[in-house]
Design a protein around this nucleic acid. Structure first.
Lengths: 161, 161
DNA sequence: TCTGAATTGAAACGAACTTTCAGTATGTTG
DNA sequence: CAACATACTGAAAGTTCGTTTCAATTCAGA
């Protein structure tokens, strides 16, 4: 489920940030951060379950707190699709991007488009507004779900990846 | 605070929808809908306070329920800017639009831009995705707040209007 | 006016966090 | 390496925003 991505580097990143802020490196933080930084996006609940596989003694409270720290350091970003749970985006090695969200299977595709951002700036200019960040979410159906409409629902295909 | 907009028409709209669905016209629904339909966007809390000015006996629960009905009938739309309270958009006489949100004073400006929507379709096509709806939110500072950065904060200027 | 179904308000409930607090782990200093 | 000041942790209680339950009330058609 979780990709074996930059392992050494993710713990380096964590250590560096902790040191910068005079915070302590605990094994809880180490585990939570490593698991978080080796995937794309995840909810607190999901991450908590992953963490529990390795160390069931860690509470979900600590997962909340650690994710909040990662957000402060721009290693994570909160997302609120619809009104449900918060999704935390791993942005440690990624630049800004927007999302396509399949309303049927929950699949999330990341993209970025220069033209769109250009016109956003234009709109902002027309309203004498200075943009600091933006969110663009395109909801609809991915190809797999779309071709299965009315038929038997497709088998799960990458809900979280 | 609340604009004296289409009054007769808003109650007609309500009556029509209630009748269509075999629901009853209560004075609570009438008041809540009229107040809601005479402004642009509002939170449950705010609308509840407006309602209370006219009839303090109406509970916030009924405001929740009535807004939910209006949403079902496409007279209102839920918005979730950031993680805070839900904002209900009056869309009774409006077509789709997106938002500029001032992170300082909370002011919300509506806009729509054909070019952006065109490129959204292009992106979707590239990912074999069929868009059913989208959300675009541009966060930043409105002119008033921007020119007051570092100085005394500006007086309130249209937070909700 | 009668009557049954829809509606209402209060209160309990629920989900998703957040805060509080006493015990514990960490890293630094000597 | 031991001591110590602090940061950190988990559990439980508390918030916030919203939903469900339920007895009492209101509405609208006959």
């Amino acid at each position: 489920m979780l990709k074996p991505l930059p392992k050494a580097r993710s713990s380096d990143l964590l250590r560096a940030r902790l040191r910068e802020h005079g915070l302590k490196l605990t094994h809880q933080r180490e585990l939570i951060a490593e698991l978080f930084l080796s995937q794309d996006h995840i909810t607190v609940e999901e991450l908590y379950h992953e963490v529990a596989k390795n160390d069931p003694s860690i509470g979900i409270i600590t997962v909340y707190r650690t994710l909040k720290l990662l957000c402060q350091w721009d290693l994570a970003q909160e997302r609120h699709f619809g009104k449900g749970k918060t999704i935390y985006d791993n942005v440690a090695w990624k630049s800004h991007h927007d999302h396509l969200i399949c309303t049927k299977c929950g699949r999330i595709i990341e993209f970025s488009n220069f033209q769109i951002e250009k016109f956003q700036e234009q709109v902002a200019g027309e309203h004498e507004f200075r943009i600091t960040f933006h969110k663009l979410e395109l909801y609809g159906m991915c190809k797999t779900c779309d071709t299965h409409v009315g038929k038997r629902p497709p088998r799960a295909h990458g809900h979280t990846a």
